[in-house]
C-alpha cells in the first residue's frame, strides 16, 4: 500500500528520498523503472524555432486583419472619464449651436411650442429661427414676418428682427414687420424695444410702430385678431376694410351709392365671406349682393 502511494508520487515527479527508499525495496518497481527509462529515450522531433517563425510569417493567413481589442493601448480610468467629458462638451457645443428653423406655410397660421412652454403663433408666410438645445441658457428667437408671442416667465426672452430687438421677461406681445416698419403690440406685461436707436417700453394695451417716427396706438383686444383668422379695425374708412376683404377672399367688391369714407370699427373673419360681409355692412345699414362668383356689390337701398 505504501509502495503504491510512493509510486503515484514518483509518477507525479514529486517523490521524496524516503519515497524512493520504499520504491527501491519493492520488487515490482524494477519493471516500472525500466519502462520509464526506455520511454524517456523516445526520439522527439526537434522544432526549429527560426524556420518555424519564418514559415508562419510566410503564411498568407498570418497577416490577415487581426481582431485587436481597442484595449491595446489602455487608458487610465481618469483619462477615460476625461474623454467622456470632452465628448459631451463637444457634442453639447455642437447641439447648442444647431439652429431650428420653422417657417409657416404661405396660407396658414402655425403655432410653435418652445422648450420652456412659451408659445409662438406664426402668421402666414413668416419664419422664426431659434436654438432648441441651447434654449434653457439663452431664450432668443429670430423673426421674419409677423408672430404673436406668449412668453413663459423666466430669463430674458429676446426677439431679433432686422429692424430692432424686443426683449421681455414674461408676457404676450405681437411683432410685425411690414414694409420695413416694425410694429410691436403688447397685450400683457411690459415689452422693451430697441429700434432705430430708440429704446422704448411698450406696456399692455399699447401698440407702437417703429418707423422714422414713433406712432402710438391703443389696443382693444386681448390678443391680435389675426391669430383667430380675423381682421379688426379701429375707426378706419370703409374703403380700407373693403380692400382687406378683397385681399383675403380674392374677390372684387364694388359699391353703389355709398360713401366709402364712412368710419368703421370692428372685425371680420377670414373663413366665411358671407358672414364677413354681414359684419361689415349691418352696423352701417348697408346691403350686399353677389353679382357673380368673384364679385360682390355693396349698396344702400334707401339712396336709389
Amino acid at each position: 500500500m505504501e509502495a503504491k502511494k510512493a509510486l503515484k508520487k514518483w509518477l507525479d515527479n514529486q517523490a521524496t528520498p524516503s519515497d524512493m527508499e520504499v520504491l527501491e525495496l519493492w520488487p515490482d518497481f524494477d519493471i516500472y523503472k525500466k519502462i520509464d527509462a526506455h520511454t524517456k529515450e523516445i526520439l522527439l522531433p526537434e522544432h526549429d524555432i527560426a524556420s518555424g517563425i519564418k514559415a508562419l510569417n510566410e503564411n498568407p493567413l498570418f497577416n490577415k486583419p487581426r481582431q485587436i481589442k481597442p484595449a491595446v493601448i489602455t487608458m487610465s480610468r481618469l483619462l477615460k472619464i476625461d474623454a467622456v467629458f470632452v465628448l459631451l462638451a463637444i457634442s453639447g457645443v455642437y447641439l447648442t449651436t444647431l439652429p431650428t428653423n420653422i417657417q409657416a406655410p404661405i396660407t396658414s397660421i402655425q403655432t410653435i411650442e418652445l422648450p420652456d412652454s412659451s408659445k409662438i403663433t406664426l402668421n402666414e408666410n413668416s419664419r422664426v429661427t431659434y436654438k432648441k438645445y441651447g434654449w434653457p441658457f439663452k431664450r432668443e428667437v429670430t423673426l421674419d414676418g409677423e408672430a404673436y408671442f406668449e412668453v413663459a416667465k423666466g430669463k430674458t426672452f429676446t426677439v431679433l428682427t432686422p429692424k430692432g430687438t424686443i426683449s421681455v421677461l414674461g408676457t404676450s406681445f405681437n411683432v410685425k414687420m411690414e414694409n420695413d416698419i416694425l410694429i410691436v403690440s403688447c397685450f400683457e406685461g411690459l415689452v422693451s424695444v430697441k429700434a432705430n436707436g430708440i429704446d422704448t417700453l411698450v406696456s399692455a394695451g399699447e401698440s407702437f410702430s417703429f418707423s422714422s417716427f414713433l406712432e402710438n396706438q391703443k389696443l382693444y383686444t386681448s390678443k391680435p385678431t389675426w391669430i383667430f383668422n380675423e381682421s379688426s379695425f379701429v375707426d378706419v374708412p370703409l374703403k380700407v376694410v373693403l380692400l382687406e376683404i378683397e385681399k383675403h377672399y380674392k374677390v372684387t367688391v364694388t359699391t353703389k351709392n355709398i360713401d366709402v369714407t364712412l368710419r368703421y370699427t370692428g372685425s371680420f373673419t377670414h373663413t366665411n365671406l358671407e358672414q364677413s360681409l354681414k359684419t361689415v355692412t349691418l352696423p352701417l345699414n348697408l346691403y350686399f349682393s353677389k353679382v357673380s362668383e368673384n364679385e360682390v356689390q355693396i349698396y344702400n337701398p334707401k339712396k336709389q
Binding site: 518555424g52 508562419l56 503564411n59 493567413l61 498570418f62 490577415k64 487581426r66 481582431q67 485587436i68 481589442k69 491595446v72
Partner: peptide, 10 residues
C-alpha cells in the same frame, strides 16, 4: 500558433 496570432487581441 497561427490561431493564436489571429486571435492575439482576445
Amino acid at each position: 500558433f497561427l490561431k493564436l496570432w489571429q486571435n492575439c487581441g482576445k
